[in-house]
């Protein structure tokens, strides 16, 4: 009995001492960590908008924007947006001024293949975005150069920038965003384009009586095996749900996104 009591006592004392030591360390390090994170964020943002003297956080629908201010006046907007790349989402930081001109674009984080996907971190490549405005297309191989061998990552980065610009435009600059409202679509056949894994996917969408009745893929350059996985199920689901934003086909995510975007492009106005 005494032996068991001794075991318990020693183990308990060691655990208490451990918890105490950790509580002390945590108390000492937490403020440092929090302050550092805050400072890093502000430093990064000061890089994008050097004139700003203050940054305000604004959260709308779970999206975090930062408003760059100078003397109390808004001079720019910053946000991080993502798009699907090869190894997962690619996150880009984008700063836009009040006129809709891009001030800075930077890679936030990504999980692309080292040596292949990380070419997007190249400063020259990123510099292409610097003279763009909210009215530009910002699309790969249209006004942004592709880096051959890293197409998927480049497209993801470009789309992420486009997403950020659109979000900022809609939130602060009164940009009209394309809206999805089937009730407003007149009967007829519409063509739309989206980008998949291998390039553009073009679809023809037929609407009658305010409902999507058929979706036909008329052009694509996807890998056949992957295209098979998505080509029927995605249009079927869209027609079923009468909504473009359906679940992606597993194993063919990029192709699915391409088809969905093309349908959206065809009908959104």
């Amino acid at each position: 009995m005494a032996y068991i009591a001794r075991l318990t006592f020693v183990l308990a004392m060691i655990c208490i001492a451990a918890a105490g030591a950790l509580a002390l360390t945590e108390g000492a390090t937490t403020p440092v960590i929090e302050q550092r994170i805050q400072e890093e964020l502000f430093e990064a943002m000061a890089d994008y908008v050097p004139e700003a003297d203050n940054f305000e956080e604004k959260v709308v629908n779970d999206k975090t924007f930062y408003i760059a201010e100078k003397g109390g006046e808004e001079i720019g907007y910053i946000m991080t947006a993502s798009a699907a790349g090869y190894g997962g989402p690619v996150y880009m930081n984008v700063a836009v001024d009040t006129e809709g001109e891009i001030l800075a674009v930077d890679v936030d984080r990504h999980t692309e293949t080292p040596g292949i996907g990380d070419v997007i971190e190249d400063e020259e490549w990123l510099a292409q975005f610097d003279d763009k405005t909210i009215d530009d297309e910002i699309a790969l191989e249209v006004d942004i150069d592709n880096i051959s061998g890293s197409t998927v990552t480049c497209r993801a980065a470009t789309n992420a920038v486009r997403n950020a610009v659109d979000e900022i435009g809609a939130e602060f600059l009164g940009l009209e965003v394309a809206e999805w409202d089937l009730a407003d679509v007149e009967d007829g056949t519409y063509e739309g384009t989206g980008s998949g894994f291998g390039g553009d996917i073009v679809v023809e969408v037929t609407v009658s009586g305010g409902e999507i009745t058929s979706i036909e893929i008329i052009e694509h350059s996807e890998t056949p095996e992957y295209f098979e996985l998505a080509k029927d199920i995605i249009p079927e689901m869209i027609i079923d749900e009468q909504d473009w934003d359906v679940d992606e086909a597993s194993g063919a995510t990029m192709t699915s996104i391409g088809i969905k975007d093309a349908v959206f492009d065809a009908l959104a106005q």
């Binding site: 090869y86 293949t113 998927v152 194993g251 995510t253 990029m254």
Partner: peptide, 8 residues
Amino acid sequence: FQGFQGMI
């Protein structure tokens, strides 16, 4: 196994 990247 690197070849599986991009599968999802």
